[in-house]
Design a protein around this nucleic acid. Structure first.
Length: 571
RNA sequence: GCGCCUGUAGCUCAGCUGGAUAGAGCAGCGGACUUCUAAUCCGCAGGCCGCAGGUUCGAAUCCUGCCAGGCGCGCCA
């Protein structure tokens, strides 16, 4: 019977195994008087950049040097001379450089790692369920007063991919969109629409100051006027009606766009409902009881400066209206009460001034700082025909997400948004991304996937497929290029786990590009030397290489799925 | 003035908890398709990692100070 390991044979497994051996060896050496009895410090096991340095390297001897009062290389020699490795985990162990130990793992371990990931298929990389980790991720949250633009697209791509990865790694995830449907902006939208309706019959009808100028307002005006005789209504009723209609229609459009973009929210959280539910009142009551509110100049203030904010903030203006900050406090308190263990907000970088005040408010409720994270997304700069296009609703140089999806396609847009760290400004060159040629980075990864599918079609024609005993079959893989690819693939699960920790989903894009590059290189070996082709005459070897290709295809497909990008079988 | 972010190849950017010769794409130059998809690959060229100190066996990475750019500092939303 084939032993089926309970844990995935991935990079983490290898590192843990290595750490176990090192710790045991260290104990052994100390007990035997070969090394002084000292505390075991934190040391690093890493994958070296240079392949000459083996599969793993540790700095343990250098870390030990000061307490042992011995030269690192000497310590390294003691450790390597007494390695506790009954299972023959290693193929080669070397002392190198200033005192590193480089480990080369037995090839068979990597072979079974490959077999393991192919068996896991679409579940390779998936984490154990951890329902105790409940994430609320709030993103996009665009005002329903206009269509989604490029910047929203970046937030949507980033937030959704982060959620996909968190969920894949076992966390419970709630995707949330906060709908600002209570403020003055909605009323202003209503006034803008009403004005446009009036202008249909009276071109001189006034347009509100700071109103919404976009063409979409005209469209809304036409639609709304077609349904109902707005002109016959009282002024206030008309504004109110236009506002409600406009908001509902815009929200519907936003939802459709996001759906098409591959983003589906679990909760559409209405600010209006939040206020109607009395959440704000309850929050204020709690703050008041804690002595954190005071009145000054007719306004109500909160003492956020006690909690690291620069100054206290107004929560209710002297005209009696609450500030946005007030509902933000109530909203985040509500998230906390809904019992999420982590809250992650994605905001545009232009809102970063609000982080410290909201953090201050959260602290006032004794909410630990780690509970609440804000990812600031830097702005998207738009380039067209070599010139920067300043985005402005007024000037009409406003590229919507919908236009972009029409022109470029969802795959390319999502991929490009994921090519930069969220805190790096993104230059989005429409002409470049529109190009359906090799300049477009998304095709590089997709092409690798399609190419592998093509190889499998070819193999099937030759009557070759994956053999039953994957482990034995894998043993035929010996080329350095093949082994390097397997090692790289085992990094996939821990990469995803790192992304969950630091919220940097762009790393996945780079990883996939690197893996695709390794495969393209490998594939091209076969154009020079037929011996190195995947579908070779030696059917056993062909089977082994198909297994490798299957592994690559699995990782690419799983990775692309997490990016919300399709993995085509033909291109 | 204060705060946050950024400064790495001509351009756009990666660089994981500090590690052993700093990477990719694009642009430039030169090569590889009668055989598994050339939307690919190979080679060449290109870098005081903004500057100066500090911590460390070891710094693009951590700390401090400066310089440059972006953004934010309302009883706006």
């Amino acid at each position: 019977m084939l032993h089926r390991p309970a844990t995935s044979q991935d990079l983490r497994f290898m590192k843990e195994k290595l750490k176990e051996i090192l710790d045991t060896t260290l104990d052994h050496c100390m007990a035997g008087g070969l090394l002084k009895e000292t505390a075991v410090p934190d040391y690093v096991i890493e994958v070296p950049n240079n392949p000459d340095h083996g599969h793993f390297a540790t700095n343990l001897p250098m870390i030990l040097a000061s307490t042992q009062k011995t030269a690192p290389r000497r310590i390294a020699e003691v450790l390597t001379g007494h390695l506790q490795d009954p299972g023959n985990f290693f193929e080669k162990v070397e002392v190198a450089g200033p005192g590193f130990i480089n480990f080369t793992i037995d090839r068979g371990r990597w072979h079974s790692a490959l077999a393991d990931m192919v068996r896991r298929a679409e579940n390779f990389g998936r984490g154990k369920p951890r329902p105790e980790d409940r994430f609320n991720v709030e993103f996009v949250s665009a005002n329903p007063t206009g269509p989604l633009h490029l910047g929203h697209g970046r937030g949507a791509a980033l937030g959704d991919t982060l959620c996909r990865i968190l969920a894949f790694r076992g966390r419970s995830v709630t995707r949330e969109f906060y709908v600002n449907d209570a403020g003055l902006q909605i009323r202003l939208l209503g006034e803008s629409i009403l004005s446009r309706i009036r202008q249909m019959t009276d071109p001189d009808a006034p347009f509100p100051e700071n109103g919404y100028h976009g063409d979409y307002v005209l469209d809304l005006a036409r639609e709304i006027a077609a349904d109902r005789a707005i002109e016959a209504m009282e002024e206030e009723d008309a504004i109110d009606y236009c506002a409600r209609q406009g908001k509902a229609r815009m929200l519907k459009e936003i939802q459709e766009d996001l759906e098409r973009f591959g983003v589906r929210f679990d909760v559409w959280y209405s600010e209006k409902q939040l206020l109607d539910s009395g959440s704000l009142d309850r929050a204020l009551e709690r703050l008041d009881r804690a002595g954190l509110l005071y009145e000054e100049g007719g306004a109500l203030w909160i003492r956020t400066s006690r909690f690291g904010d620069d100054k206290d903030r107004v929560i209710r203006k002297s005209d009696g209206r609450f500030t946005y900050f007030a509902s933000d406090i109530a909203y985040h308190l509500d998230k906390r009460e809904r019992d999420f263990t982590r809250s992650v907000d994605l905001w545009g970088a232009d809102h970063h001034g609000y982080v410290s005040r909201l953090r201050g408010a959260m602290a006032a409720f004794d909410i630990p700082g780690e509970w609440f994270s804000v990812l600031l997304i830097q702005l998207v700069k738009l380039w067209k025909r070599g010139n920067e296009v300043k985005m402005s609703k007024r000037a009409g140089t406003y590229v919507t997400l919908r236009e972009l999806m029409d022109e470029v396609g969802v795959d390319a847009v999502r991929f490009v948004f994921m090519t930069k760290s969220h805190d790096s400004p993104l230059d989005f060159d429409v002409d470049l991304v529109k190009k359906k040629d090799s300049d477009n980075p998304v095709y590089y990864v997709q092409y690798a996937h399609a190419r592998i599918c093509s190889v499998f079609r070819k193999a099937r024609e030759e009557g070759i497929g994956l053999p039953r005993d994957l482990e034995r079959c894998a043993a035929r893989l010996v080329l350095e290029e093949e082994m390097a690819m397997i090692r790289r693939m085992t990094e996939f699960p821990s990469l995803l786990e790192d992304i969950c920790r630091v919220f940097e989903p762009h790393r996945l894009t780079y990883y996939l590009t690197g893996l695709a590059a390794a495969f393209h290189r490998y594939f091209n070996l076969g154009t020079k030397n037929p011996q190195h082709r995947i579908v070779v005459e030696d059917r056993e070897l062909a089977g082994a290489r198909l297994l490798l290709a299957a592994g690559v295809r699995t990782v690419l497909a799983n990775g692309l799925a997490l990016l919300g990008v399709s993995a085509p079988e033909k291109m």
